[in-house]
Structure formats: C-alpha cells, structure tokens
C-alpha cells in the first residue's frame, strides 16, 4: 500500500519468492511502476472495497489487471475471484489467475467464476520470465481497458 494513487497491477501472491520473481520480471520490463502486492485475499478485497484500514484505496482506483494466485491464506483465490466477479463495482476488472496448478478442476472452477485468463507458472525460470513479461505487456500495453474516466466524471 505504498500508494493510494492509480494502481496498474494488483498482484495477490502469498509466496514471497514467487512475488519477488514476478515483481523483478515485471520491473525489468518496466511494467511494475504502479504495482500493488497483496499477500493474502483478505487484504486484496479490503483494498478493492475500501473496507480495511482507513487509508485503503477508494473504489475509483480500479487496477487495470489483477494477478491472482489460487492458494492463498485466509480467503483463497477462487473465493476472491468469486467476490470480485459477483460485485458490480468490481466485476469488470480483468482477473488473471497466475498459479502453479495445472489441475483441471481448478481451471474449470476459475473460468466458471469468470476468470479472464488462466496462466500456469512454469517451473523453469527462463520460461517463467518469458510468460510474466508477455502477460504484463499484454494487459498493460496491448489490452484496452474500459475507460475509467467516464465513471470518474460522474463523480464530479
């Protein structure tokens, strides 16, 4: 929560090593300038809905993409996904599942709940870096988000 200003990427990842590797990779490609790392699902939801600490971000600060791990302490990834996708304030935010699991039930469940993408973290670091860099580039540079400013305008 280094910044309550506009967040590009929200990374929800409990494993500090994975988080560091992802952040390093994104930073290396200049994609992590406005990255918010949440270590568990509860913090992520608190931030999105402004229910946690008073300095939580207001709702206008919708990340351009959420990178969500599935195995998370407190509230697990699928539950976080379900809450995000079932709330009309957040359901348009792209959620990319980034996980180690290539198990079918997980993949199915994620898509059923409305995940926008499902990415399996490769074990080999070269491949991992490659995947994360492309992922970041796609969602932050290629993908055109729904214009937030329209919504912002209504506030004024």
């Amino acid at each position: 929560m280094e910044s309550s200003s506009v967040v590009d990427v929200m990374l929800v990842e409990d494993n500090p090593q994975d988080a560091e590797l992802i952040i390093r990779t994104l930073r290396k490609h200049n994609l992590a300038n406005r990255l918010l790392h949440m270590k568990n699902g509860k913090d992520a939801l608190d931030f999105l809905f402004g229910t946690g600490s008073p300095e939580s971000a207001p709702m206008e600060n919708k990340p351009r993409v959420i990178l969500l791990d599935l195995k998370l302490p407190k509230i697990d990834g699928l539950e976080v996904l379900r809450i995000i996708k079932s709330d009309e304030r957040t359901h348009i935010i792209p959620v990319v599942i980034v996980t180690s699991s290539a198990e079918n039930p997980d993949i199915q469940a994620a898509y059923n709940l409305g995940a926008n993408s499902y990415v399996v973290k490769p074990v080999k670091f070269d491949a991992f870096m490659n995947v994360m860099a492309r992922l970041g580039a796609y969602w932050l540079q290629v993908n055109h988000p729904m214009n937030n400013s329209n919504k912002d305008m209504t506030k004024y």
């Binding site: 090593q17 590797l21 195995k71 180690s100 973290k121 074990v123 080999k124």
Partner: peptide
C-alpha cells in the same frame, strides 16, 4: 501441483538472478 513447484521455481529463478 501447487507447493512443490514454487520452491523449484525459486531455486531456478534466484540462481538465474
């Protein structure tokens, strides 16, 4: 699937770094 890969990736990743 979840837990055994992450440490391996860390070993590989940090060694690379």
């Amino acid at each position: 699937s979840h837990d055994l890969r992450a440490p391996l990736r860390a070993i590989d990743g940090f060694t690379d770094i």
